[in-house]
Computed example of a mutant assay.
Amino acid sequence: MFENFTLAHIPTLFVATATTFGGLMPFFNAQSAIEEFGLPKRIAISKEAQSVMILSSARITALGACMFAFYFSGKFSEVDTVMVIMGAYVGSVDAYVCWKEEVTGKAIFRGLSGAVIAAWGWFGLTAGV
């Protein structure tokens, strides 16, 4: 299972774990998940926003599960591809929404985190390219 493991896989496994299991948080407490994401309380207390958060989190959990499936199948280039797309697109959208909601610190954090994740995949660091 881990015969091809290298230290360079730690960030990838961290991202896969955070997205897979972090995406489950809204199922148990959507308001808390929205607040943890960094959005304002006025959004977190909205039942409509909580439903949307649960739906969106299911999709993020699916991406994390795909990363694990590819990783444990030894398809490291595919994992890097998911990281590029997820980091660039999801990270940018996360940053944009946080910025729009005037949560500047979270916007910067999410934008930079997404950029690092995307760069990791772009340079093929999981695959060792």
Rank of each mutant, 00 (worst) to 15 (best):
M1N: 15
E3N: 15
N4F: 15
N4S: 15
F5L: 11
A8E: 05
H9W: 11
I10H: 06
I10T: 08
F14M: 12
F14S: 11
F21R: 11
F21D: 10
F21V: 12
F21N: 04
G22V: 04
G23L: 02
P26I: 01
P26S: 10
F27L: 15
F28N: 08
F28Y: 15
Q31M: 14
E35W: 12
E36F: 14
E36N: 14
F37G: 01
F37I: 11
L39I: 05
L39Y: 10
K41T: 11
I45R: 13
A49T: 08
A49H: 06
Q50W: 03
Q50D: 08
Q50N: 12
V52I: 11
S56P: 10
S57W: 02
S57H: 03
R59I: 11
R59M: 14
I60R: 08
I60V: 08
A62C: 15
A62I: 14
G64M: 03
A65R: 09
A65I: 05
A65M: 14
F68A: 07
A69G: 15
Y71L: 07
F72D: 13
S73D: 11
G74W: 05
S77W: 02
S77K: 11
V79S: 00
D80R: 00
T81W: 03
T81P: 08
T81C: 11
T81E: 12
M83V: 03
V84S: 03
I85R: 03
G87L: 02
Y89R: 12
G91I: 02
Y96R: 10
W99T: 07
E101C: 07
E101F: 14
E101Y: 12
T104C: 12
T104V: 15
G105I: 04
K106W: 07
I108L: 04
F109I: 06
F109W: 08
R110H: 10
R110C: 09
G111E: 01
G111V: 01
L112Q: 07
V116M: 07
I117L: 07
I117Y: 02
A119E: 02
W120H: 00
G121A: 08
W122K: 09
G124L: 05
G124K: 00
L125T: 02
L125S: 04
G128C: 09
V129A: 14
